[in-house]
Deep mutational scan, measured.
Amino acid sequence: MGFKLLSKLLVYLTASIMAIASPLAFSVDSSGEYPTVSEIPVGEVRLYQIADGVWSHIATQSFDGAVYPSNGLIVRDGDELLLIDTAWGAKNTAALLAEIEKQIGLPVTRAVSTHFHDDRVGGVDVLRAAGVATYASPSTRRLAEVEGNEIPTHSLEGLSSSGDAVRFGPVELFYPGAAHSTDNLIVYVPSASVLYGGCAIYELSRTSAGNVADADLAEWPTSIERIQQHYPEAQFVIPGHGLPGGLDLLKHTTNVVKAHTNRSVVE
Rank of each mutant, 00 (worst) to 15 (best):
G2V: 08
K8T: 15
L9W: 14
A15C: 14
I17F: 10
I17P: 05
I17S: 13
L24F: 13
D29V: 10
D29F: 10
Y34I: 08
Y34P: 09
V37L: 14
S38W: 11
E39P: 10
G43N: 09
Q49F: 09
A51F: 06
H57Y: 07
I58T: 15
A59C: 06
Q61F: 06
Q61N: 10
S62I: 08
F63I: 15
A66M: 12
S70P: 05
N71I: 04
G72C: 03
L73R: 02
I74K: 03
R76G: 07
D77Q: 04
G78D: 14
G78C: 05
L83W: 02
D85A: 00
D85I: 00
A87G: 02
A87T: 03
W88M: 02
W88V: 04
G89Q: 00
K91V: 15
A95P: 01
L96N: 00
E99P: 01
E101H: 12
Q103C: 08
I104S: 00
L106W: 06
V108S: 00
T109G: 10
S113D: 04
T114D: 00
T114L: 00
H115W: 00
V124K: 01
L127T: 00
R128G: 12
A129Y: 15
A129R: 12
V132I: 13
Y135Q: 00
Y135D: 02
A136S: 09
R141W: 03
R141N: 07
R141D: 01
R142S: 13
R142D: 12
A144P: 05
E145L: 14
V146C: 10
G148V: 04
E150N: 07
P152E: 00
S155I: 13
G158Q: 08
L159P: 06
L159V: 10
S160G: 13
A165Q: 13
A165T: 12
F168M: 10
G169L: 04
E172P: 00
A178N: 10
H180G: 00
T182Y: 14
N184H: 02
V187H: 00
P190Q: 10
G197K: 03
G198S: 06
C199D: 03
C199W: 04
Y202D: 06
L204Y: 09
S205M: 08
R206E: 15
G210C: 05
N211A: 15
N211C: 06
V212S: 15
V212G: 11
D214M: 07
A215F: 05
D216F: 05
E219Y: 06
P221R: 08
R226S: 06
R226W: 07
R226V: 07
I227G: 04
Y231T: 02
P232E: 07
F236G: 04
I238C: 02
P239V: 05
L243R: 15
L243T: 15
P244W: 07
G245L: 02
G245T: 03
L249K: 02
L250W: 02
T254P: 05
V256S: 04
V256H: 02
A259W: 08
H260M: 07
